[in-house]
Computed example of a mutant assay.
Amino acid sequence: MPAMQLHSPAAERNRQPILERLQRLLPPRGDALELASGSGQHVAHFAAAMPGWTWQPSDPDPAALASIAAWCAGLPNVHAPLALDASDATWAGVPDRVDLVLAVNLLHIAPWAVCGALMAGAARHLSPAGVLVVYGPFFEADVPTAASNLDFDADLRRRDPRWGLRDLAAVDAQARSAGLVRRERVAMPSNNLLLAWGRSPGERR
Rank of each mutant, 00 (worst) to 15 (best):
M50W: 08
A141L: 09
V186H: 10
Q16A: 13
E184V: 09
L33C: 07
H79E: 15
S39Q: 11
G121T: 07
N192A: 03
A169K: 05
R159L: 05
M4I: 11
E20N: 14
S58C: 06
S67C: 10
A69H: 07
A117D: 01
S37W: 09
D61C: 09
R183I: 04
E12Q: 15
H79F: 10
M4D: 15
F46I: 12
S190C: 03
P189G: 03
R204G: 11
A187R: 07
A129D: 15
A103F: 04
V94G: 08
P76H: 12
E140S: 12
F139R: 00
Y135L: 06
P60H: 09
G38T: 12
R158K: 14
E184W: 09
R166G: 09
D151M: 03
A80C: 06
H125V: 08
A10K: 03
P28S: 13
H42S: 10
P51N: 06
A44R: 07
A89Y: 06
A187M: 02
H42W: 04
R97K: 13
L118F: 09
R97A: 14
M4V: 15
A32K: 01
R124L: 06
L150C: 02
D160N: 15
A141W: 00
G121P: 07
V114I: 14
P144T: 01
S177Y: 00
V171S: 01
V134L: 02
S127N: 06
R97L: 11
A64M: 12
R162H: 14
W71H: 15
A117N: 03
H7V: 15
V104M: 02
S148D: 01
L194I: 08
A120H: 08
N149T: 00
A11C: 14
E140A: 11
H79V: 01
